[in-house]
Design a protein around this nucleic acid. Sequence first.
DNA 1: AATTAACCGTACCGAATGGTCGGATACCGA
DNA 2: TCGGTATCCGACCATTCGGTACGGTTAATT
Lengths: 227, 227
Amino acid sequence: MHVRVKTEDRRQAIIETAIEVFRDVGFERASMTTISRRLGGSKGTLYGYFRSKAELFEAAMKAAVETPGDRIMELLDPEADDLRSCLERFAKAYLGFILEKNVLAITRTAVAEGFDSSLGPHLFEQGPQRALATLAKFFAEQMERGRLCKSSAVVASIHFKGLIEAGFLEEALYGAKSQVDRRQAIPSAVDIFLRAYGPGTQEQLIAEPASSKTERRQVPADRSRER
Amino acid sequence: MHVRVKTEDRRQAIIETAIEVFRDVGFERASMTTISRRLGGSKGTLYGYFRSKAELFEAAMKAAVETPGDRIMELLDPEADDLRSCLERFAKAYLGFILEKNVLAITRTAVAEGFDSSLGPHLFEQGPQRALATLAKFFAEQMERGRLCKSSAVVASIHFKGLIEAGFLEEALYGAKSQVDRRQAIPSAVDIFLRAYGPGTQEQLIAEPASSKTERRQVPADRSRER
DNA sequence: AATTAACCGTACCGAATGGTCGGATACCGA
DNA sequence: TCGGTATCCGACCATTCGGTACGGTTAATT
């Protein structure tokens, strides 16, 4: 036929503004009126593009997290020659990402929404879950190549993520300051991880449910690194 | 004078009811009317004991977390003969605690409140921060005794906490299910921790800011355990 | 029994919110 | 140029919430 059409640009502009507002005041406190005002438009327009506040919010979350998150996961290069420095680079980028104001705000909101609405679990799958899966795949590959001792790659990825986030994520979520410096913490966390998962540890780290009476030995290993 | 007095019992009853409601629907969605109804009383009474919703909320948080949390920290017995099993016992209790519905709800709310209100940081200090401090003190003691390699006790406690929570806390906060079983995860996490921090690792784990060009060696260690 | 404060119930206030609607206007394709 | 739609604006609705006010009732103390 004819006429004017809802533009993708406008949609993006709305999402961007929404992200801003959500970041500043959180989901519950963010009103559609505020968003429309900051956008310079009208509330009605918002409802022209999104059927509800929740829908707009979900779109905003996705836009803010998806692409940059995936890009970080690409830092896990299976061909990298130095595992330690590869992990450190990744950890630095990852930590920087999840501590970003935008991402923090989204995390906060997702958590706050974790009460009932399926939004919480859904966002977990799209975000942390996917990251964890990618990480596990990477670790599995490294185990194959003998650069990590063989064990459950899933558990290893969980431990790695835990070590990296420890001391930062929770603090940031609460709005408190970290006790430690990021520059120092990352190599330290990676080091701890490699101490436990590095090559030279022969036996299974994770006992299968069957044998809970596992003997654990320790095997020497030599590693050095330079910066 | 004479007459009826605001009783401490009633205050406690209010707090308990408040905890219930907060746990069920979260802070923002919890209305004073709901609380008073479930309490079986009147909204006015609430305001007789607490000047505002925030004040009631803070009291409820404190009551729900403080005492049981402190009790768990007592599981860290410096005199325990077997460090590994001591850590496992503690980890189990700790994890059970922070994954409780009550505590989860509080954490969620505290996080949601992390935007501005000083409530977030304040709750962090009262909760996780204190736990971390106790843990660090315990680790420092163990390092003295040669049961852990000497390094920063603060960092060690952060790593330990991270390893234990990894795979559970974030999932629970989002309202998602964990990928791993708690019974298996705890010994596994403790094991990883001891691999890295156990005795026999001589040098400093955490480089001081000065020497960022640290050589890291690995020293063999023998440990075994039985259940 | 008299006193007095806690308590209940309910109504109410003011503010804010998500969402809708209608009319005026700017914009674009044909 | 013209038709039609996106957009704007403001009003509006229904609801909810924190908080207050008030009259009537209950219960503890003297």
